[in-house]
């Protein structure tokens, strides 16, 4: 729905500055847009194109490739259940069924109360706690049907508010560092160092050379 505004726009501009080429900020900016709207809205796509000196088609082309970028509104919580081999061996598909039942949505759908979107995902790298799932990319496992019910009530009743932010919020830790050093400065410094070192080496090893 929205373009970046105020402090979010400031953050967007900071992100663009981190990269030698602005287009590199595309995915971080998609995440930023999702942290505001919960999904990547058409206006956000246009704004990201402006900020990265690309076209909306290019931003859309990138965004649509990646599983985490949602091009349509989703529930407050996206629940991704892993059914890949390690989880499957430990009951991943049974867990998926329990999640569909409990959250009231089938894979790819959102519950009527707009709280839960259910996804079947590939390995999320928590295989020693299989079967497992993520809620907005915060991980839970191993889980059984009872565990899913508890998880749902914990989410609805706010007991996981700190642990599970709304969909789209990935890292809540912002970069805190001095202005970036110009690449030219670093490259020049290295050239000087390399030269000094090789002349020192030449002096030291002069006899053998």
């Amino acid at each position: 729905m929205s373009r970046f505004k105020d402090e979010v726009l400031q953050e967007a501009l900071e992100l663009v500055k981190l990269y030698p080429e602005a287009r590199s900020a595309t995915i971080p900016l998609c995440h930023l847009a999702q942290s505001v709207d919960g999904y990547l809205a058409p206006d956000a796509i246009e704004h990201i194109a402006e900020l990265t000196s690309t076209t909306p088609a290019e931003v859309h082309g990138t965004a649509s490739f990646y599983d985490m970028i949602q091009l349509h509104p989703v529930g407050r919580y996206v629940v991704g259940v892993c059914t890949n081999i390690a989880c499957m061996l430990q009951g991943g598909y049974e867990l998926l069924e329990a999640v569909e039942e409990t959250m009231g949505a089938s894979v790819g759908e959102t519950s009527e109360d707009s709280l839960f979107t259910v996804e079947e995902v590939e390995c999320i790298a928590l295989c020693d706690r299989a079967p497992c799932l993520h809620v907005n990319y915060r991980y839970f496992g191993p889980l059984d049907e009872e565990g899913v019910k508890r998880l749902k009530s914990d989410l609805i009743e706010g007991r996981l508010e700190d642990e599970v932010p709304s969909h789209g919020v990935i890292s809540r830790i912002k970069r805190s560092a001095p202005e970036l050093i110009p690449l030219e400065e670093i490259d020049e410094l290295r050239l000087v160092e390399d030269e000094q070192r090789s002349s020192r080496m030449a002096q030291k090893g002069g006899g053998d050379a």
Partner: peptide, 26 residues
């Protein structure tokens, strides 16, 4: 710089990862 991916197995392949880091499809 810490750079987040966005969900695509193929980006573990190093040249796909570089494409992704350049803001493109992996």
């Amino acid at each position: 710089i810490v750079h987040p991916g966005a969900g695509a197995y193929i980006c573990g392949e190093e040249t796909a990862l570089l494409e992704s880091l350049e803001g493109k499809r992996g």
